[in-house]
């Protein structure tokens, strides 16, 4: 075995995961271009639904990065909460508002897009340069020591319910407030009071004509009780109102009167 291969195997077998292994490098160089491309596509996509789908791609690749960085709990939360709940909420609102509500292409501020792009590029250069200057050389320690062999989820839970317990309680209050706020904001006062059944009945009686009682159901006294079988009146004639208009294809009489059959062959 060559020395290079030996180091690679040694790096891959180190369980704490502090230095980046070969697997991680492959994962990173596969998914990082996908994530960046999807993010750029999200900004450029004309349709908002396409933007949402591309954002899902970014979020899922970030979840993969979290698993590579020894944060399996956050990876699962990322998939379940972000991609599953938050993004679906986005899609719901998108469908409510109307998918075809297109972006206005007119620039309200002259040259805003160009200026925004230039500022963004400058910001990226600044960030990367500052990072490169600040990081210099360091040795990543990995979270294996902090987990102390208890596993990621247990270690996070211990910290969350001891050191961060007040922040945790505060987030519960925040979530309740957010739910209440969403209900208040999305609530719509009805423009007029809802009409009760009693009021509608009074209107109908005052108008007169038509049926006061409910219409006869289909199939009453007839051979079948299918919806297209008209009811029979007590004298054997057909009650036309018992079948909805669009179901009355043929005006055929329902086959056999039950009363007749009972007379014909008594049990």
């Amino acid at each position: 075995m060559t020395p290079l291969a030996l180091t690679v195997v040694a790096a891959a077998s180190s369980s704490s995961g502090a230095p980046a292994t070969l697997h991680e490098a492959v994962l990173f160089w596969l998914l990082a271009p996908i994530a960046v491309g999807a993010a750029i596509g999200m900004v450029l996509a004309r349709s908002a639904v396409h933007a949402a789908v591309l954002l899902a791609v970014v979020m899922l690749s970030l979840a993969a990065f979290y698993t590579a960085e020894n944060a399996p709990f956050l990876a699962v939360v990322q998939v379940v909460v972000y991609t599953g709940a938050v993004l679906m909420l986005f899609l719901f609102v998108l469908m409510l508002i109307g998918v075809d509500s297109t972006d206005s292409l007119m620039e309200t501020l002259h040259g805003q897009r160009f200026a925004a792009t230039v500022i963004g590029l400058g910001f990226a250069v600044l960030l990367v340069a500052a990072l490169a200057g600040a990081l210099g050389s360091f040795h990543p320690r990995g979270v294996g020591g902090a987990e102390a062999g208890k596993g990621n989820v247990t270690a996070i839970a211990e910290q969350l319910f001891s050191r961060y317990v007040f922040a945790f309680e505060a987030t519960s209050a925040l979530l309740i407030t957010a739910g209440l706020g969403a209900m208040v904001l999305a609530h719509r006062e009805p423009l007029q009071a809802r009409r009760t059944q009693q009021e509608r009945m009074r209107e109908r009686t005052a108008r007169g004509g038509g049926e006061m009682a409910p219409l006869p159901g289909p199939g009453v006294y007839a051979d079948h009780d299918a919806v297209d079988t008209p009811a029979l009146l007590p004298d054997g004639s057909i009650a036309p109102a018992s079948v909805a208009e669009h179901l009355q294809i043929s005006r055929a009489k329902p086959h056999v009167d039950v009363a007749e059959r009972e007379i014909g062959n008594p049990r």
Partner: peptide, 8 residues
Amino acid sequence: ARMDGNLD
């Protein structure tokens, strides 16, 4: 978190 060696 990974560079610093704790879970914060």
